[in-house]
Write a protein that binds this DNA or RNA. Sequence first.
DNA 1: TAGGCCATCTGGTCCT
DNA 2: AGGACCAGATGGCCTA
Length: 265
Amino acid sequence: MTKARQERFRARRIKANARERSRMHGLNDALDTLRRVMPCYSKTQKLSKIETLRLARNYIWALSEVLESGQSPESHGFVEMLCKGLSQPTSNLVAGCLQLGPSPMILNKLEDKCGGPGMGSMVAGHPLSYPSPGLPSPPYGSLEASHLLQMKGFKGPVYDNPSPNECSSSTPPYDGPLTPPLSISGNFALKQEPSPHESERNYTPHHAHYLSSHHYPTSTTGSLPGGPQAHPLLQASRYELPLDVAFDSFGKNSFSNNSSSFTEW
DNA sequence: TAGGCCATCTGGTCCT
DNA sequence: AGGACCAGATGGCCTA
């Protein structure tokens, strides 16, 4: 290989690396967009990639159940669907969010206690302030777990610790119900914010993930005996409920609880 | 210290 | 030839 050819090859490799980086950034941006429409979006406690995908899967499943079988979103089943296959920390996060999301009073208290703008300030504008022009009234035009719970006056269980989600180290903080409504047409009325990545693009190769690596509360290993304690909403039956649901397709019958088996990712 | 998670680099494969 | 996509390898940070 001549020197000129080596240089060409090297230049090509560098270009390919840059493209690959860009491609992965695009993928991460998409993942971040997905995080924002999840029921427990938090800027400070990002779900890991795998947990984001799992929660998204469960969210679709749970909302489908609400629509198709009329299952109440305030039921244990709804939370269990959301948490199916998630790690214990993520399950706790979701359960905590579903409980705290509906209560502006609690959110405001948390804002006072935790300081800084956050969930409390978001409550007034959410979910009703999300414009849904041309869409029917909720839940048809705006369907998100915490919204549904709010509409139905959901009240969570009583905790030993009355504020399981407040600035504790055991449960990640909840940034507020930032989740925009999901329209039935499949479009998200997404309030576009600049992706975190956009402002982190001028990093040297090894900087990017340092910025966010310590924000991930979850692990992919799932909850095991001896792990963090399950959220009270989940303690009763999380590991005993044999929910057999297939996600290989989104056909109507794919979400039934008795026809096929739940496929773990 | 081990394990989880991440970004990046790299070579292979497929497609245009 | 060049771009997109993929998966394996590598190394760094964080947490338990």
